[in-house]
Design a protein around this nucleic acid. Structure first.
Length: 593
DNA sequence: GCCGTTTTCGGCCCGACTGTTTTCAGTCG
């Protein structure tokens, strides 16, 4: 069994234990173990072979046994038995807001409900409100939750969520009572998808701010309207929370609600190890620090006098804990606290939008795009780019009006003519998005590929091949001398279509060995290759290109989403082709030939 | 289940909110 499957099993065990009413710390040990495994950068097979699994923090002897058994046999008796003991419907119930492991267990034990339908019937019969610990409101809340389950459970593309969030943030900042306002949560961390929106406001007059927030035209439902917190839901099912705090707490609240949860745990542990207790409300000497370093007067009155610390920004908070400021997009609990403690080379300098001088992999009216060569070039110039790469589909993508060899060469002529016309200061590189056929051969003649400036190779068919077949197929394409870039390497469509089965580590190694670039497809629905893989891959030497895959002029702006992913992946600018000037790009293409 | 420059046992991040309660458990982020 491979690492990703083992991670799934460990996460599954954690959920099942929750429904068993197990010790929460035991549950955390399993989900923590899953997390550690998921973010481990070494090859699992090697780690096991070298007997290093147990020395990883968060993996103790019980987890070592289970992970090794799963790796070797693909099965685990403990897991099989655990699964068999719990009805699958109970797991689904955890998606209903307000229901956690304990309440689901109680509903099951007391009423025998094993499915959402049975739970709904029990609520309608009034059986749930009769239970101790539940009441009329719980019953109604469960029924609403069941009715809206699909919409509430849905995540949203970062790009879409940002479109909703921006005017709200601007509106908050316009209010006279608001001293400072920021969006927090996964939106601020630039995650590829966002569950809900979080806004943090500093104000000494919360009420008018709350009233404005819940009174927005687009609000469909107000789910909370308190003094420090309000929650609303929009028609799309997207939920937004607003928290208003005094200015002195703003940095703490912003840090806390930016998360991630794992990052916060790491930060709090760090604070504790230095004798402080960190929360969204502040930083104070911990009651059981016992370090003796702190002179705390237990009898003094106010929080200030008892040693509560003030910071005016997140930066000061990090500095107080001996860290360089960790950018929000890196706060994923993936070792960033340790890296930012060490400083130096372990701290990446993150890509800025302004460093991007052009983009590759865009379409025109020749295949399935909506803009002509001239229109796309003009839009690229308006974005401040020095160059634009055009890469239309090849003929196997029949549904996309893909180009055969003759049409490719004709378009090449047109692009050359455009460049020679002196019509614009922008240079257009002539490329193609060539299909990787099911056997790994390419959809165009070698001579056609050689005539172009570059080629992006992509899989657009036979998604259901086995992992071995798909991996071999893509590696064969990477080894072809005409290949400059690999397009969207997993084929995933966020929130809609899973990745096809492929061993990306092998693909990454092959790309490095053949000096082939892997793209970050910056279409907000793809963001493929995934940011989680980039840091390690870049360290090994992989080159990256940020490719908006624009099908119309407006789509070029999506390169910003690709910049987000490059930042999250900590890819240095030297390894991003888009940061080179026109001559540098041309040289890269020439050297690949 | 994991972990340990005071601990191999007894902790484990922290606090608000909700709905249910007469003092708090469960959920959530």
């Amino acid at each position: 069994m491979n690492k990703a499957d083992i991670v799934d099993v460990l996460e599954d065990i954690a959920v099942l234990l929750e429904l068993k009413g197990e010790n929460p710390f035991k549950i955390r040990a399993y989900s923590g173990g899953a997390r550690v495994l998921e973010t481990m950068e070494d090859d699992l097979g090697e780690v096991i072979a070298e007997g290093r699994l147990g020395s990883i923090k968060g993996v103790g002897s019980a987890l070592v046994d289970k992970i090794e058994t799963l790796y070797a046999t693909g099965e685990l008796e403990y897991y099989t038995k655990l699964r068999a003991s719990i009805a699958p419907g109970l797991i689904e119930m955890l998606d209903i807001p307000g229901l956690g492991g304990k309440k689901v267990k109680k509903l099951h034990d007391a009423l025998g409900v094993e499915s959402i339908d049975a739970l709904k019937a029990a609520c309608e019969a009034g059986e749930v409100s009769a239970l101790k610990g539940f009441g009329k409101k719980s019953e109604e809340k469960i029924l609403t939750g069941i009715a809206n389950r699909a919409a509430y459970a849905k995540r949203h593309l970062w790009w879409d969520a940002r479109t909703v969030a921006e005017p709200i943030l601007a509106g908050l900042r316009d209010l006279p009572q608001v001293e400072q306002a920021e969006a927090a949560g996964s939106l601020r961390r630039l995650k590829e998808t966002v569950g809900d929106l979080d806004f943090i406001v500093a104000s000494s007059e919360p009420q008018p701010v709350m009233d404005w927030f819940v009174g927005q035209d687009s609000v469909q439902e107000v789910t909370a309207h308190g003094e420090t917190k309000s929650s609303v839901r929009f028609e799309s099912g997207l939920q937004a929370d607003l928290r208003v705090v005094p200015m002195a707490q703003f940095a703490f609240a912003l840090h806390h609600f930016t998360g991630s949860k794992e990052h916060n745990v790491a930060m709090r542990q760090r604070a504790l190890s230095r004798g402080y207790s960190l929360s969204e409300w502040g930083l104070k000497p911990s009651s059981n620090s016992g370090s003796g370093e702190l002179e705390v007067e237990p009898s003094t009155g106010s929080a200030q006098e008892s040693g509560e610390l003030e910071v005016s920004s997140e930066q000061e908070l990090f500095e107080f804990l001996g860290l360089q400021a960790i950018p929000p997009e890196l706060r994923e609990g993936m070792g960033e606290v340790e890296r930012y403690e060490q400083g130096g080379d372990s701290v990446p300098s993150l890509l800025e939008l302004s460093q991007v001088r052009g983009v590759f992999h865009n379409h025109t009216t020749a295949s399935d795009g909506r803009g002509t060569i001239e229109e796309m070039a003009e839009a690229a110039e308006a974005l401040g780019f020095d160059y634009l790469g055009l890469a239309d589909h090849s003929k196997a993508s029949y549904q996309a009006n893909g180009l055969d060899d003759a049409r490719v060469l004709k378009q090449l002529e047109q692009i050359r003519a455009y460049n020679e016309s002196g019509e614009s200061g922008l240079h257009v590189f002539a490329g193609i998005e060539c299909d990787i056929l099911p056997d790994g051969s390419l959809d165009l003649e070698d001579s056609t590929l050689a005539a172009l400036d570059y080629a992006v190779m992509s899989v657009h068919s036979s998604f259901s091949q086995s992992e071995d077949e798909m991996t071999a197929r893509v590696i064969r394409a990477i080894e072809h001398p005409g290949t400059v870039m690999l397009g969207h390497p997993t084929g995933r469509i966020l929130l809609r279509r899973e990745s096809y089965k492929i061993d990306l580590q092998k693909v990454i190694d092959a790309a490095i060995a053949n000096k082939v670039i892997i793209e970050i497809n910056a279409n907000p629905k793809r963001l493929d290759m995934d940011w989680r893989l980039w840091r390690r891959a870049a360290e090994k030497g992989l080159m990256c290109a940020i490719n908006p895959d624009a099908h119309k002029t407006e789509g070029l702006a999506h390169y910003a989403a690709g910049v987000n992913i490059a930042r999250k992946g900590g890819i240095p600018a030297e390894q991003i082709l888009n940061c080179r000037d026109c001559a540098g790009v041309a040289q890269w293409f020439a050297e690949r030939r």
